[in-house]
Design a protein around this nucleic acid. Structure first.
Lengths: 138, 138
DNA sequence: ATATTAGATTATAATCATTATAATTATGAA
DNA sequence: TTCATAATTATAATGATTATAATCTAATAT
């Protein structure tokens, strides 16, 4: 049994070919794909795949903390298989998302928290990427 | 002519009663309301108001940089009339959003930017608020 | 190996947020 | 007061996501 299967065995979910195909596509993927992008890619080799399956699978993976759901793009959810703490830089024109792998220490004083239990943070840097900057300004 | 009307005159948009009612509701509002919440509040005094108007008005206000559109909540857009740079703390249970008014200096080295032109940043702290913590754990 | 069953996939319908359309109405300038 | 432009409204359309129910299959026990 290979390493990947071993790894996902730990989740105690059934390892269907659809799930493995989606996991394959996501593994190491730095594009922060949407459900549509996952569907379009995986359904090439898996023509019977339905959108519902992609939604089911990514929701399961999010629940099992194998992928992160990003709400950076206000129009659709995007997914990130990189579970270690990191941040993102978004191009406001083309919506491309790049990883920012810097450790910032973000302290919030007790009196600001008002009893809130902090679990993490995520920084969204925004601006315009080199490619979009190169095109006609508007 | 009062101060508020003077202020919005500068936008060069027509000052309709609907817009003033929405602006009144948003001004100083720290709840980060959704379109639904804005509609429900404003339509109490304005029964003829339609959802389309709320969408039109908030989109106009976002375009004129009078309110900020937040994508913290993956299910719906939320709006913040506070335009000065600040951050947010979200309860993952009740989705309440609180302001974090701390100035963090977040530097990104040139070689990480890869030509990206930074325009700003926004930190999302997440965790569980005091009220939700108090309720039954799950 | 086979049967069993809980869970997964699929097609499809339903829902919710949001945008588009077109007709009516109202603001603000002349 | 008139008028052109822009805003509001009702409603249809779209797009993302979730729900439903029937079928199918992975994993376990026989």
């Amino acid at each position: 049994m290979n390493e990947k299967i071993k790894k996902y065995k730990l989740l105690n979910i059934k390892l269907t070919p659809q799930r493995l195909a989606i996991l394959d596509y996501l593994e190491g993927n730095r594009m922060h794909p949407s459900v549509e992008q996952i569907y379009k890619h995986v359904s090439r080799r898996f023509p019977s795949m339905s959108y519902a399956t992609v939604y089911n699978v990514v929701n399961t993976l999010v629940k099992h903390k194998v992928v992160k759901e990003l709400s950076i793009d206000p129009d659709k959810k995007r997914f990130d298989p990189d579970m270690h703490t990191h941040h993102h830089m978004v191009c406001i024109k083309c919506k491309k998302i790049m990883d920012i792998d810097i450790d910032y220490s973000l302290h919030v004083p007790e009196q600001v928290l008002e009893g809130f239990t902090l679990m993490g943070n995520h920084i969204e840097f925004y601006g315009i990427c080199a490619q979009c900057r190169g095109k006609d300004k508007d």
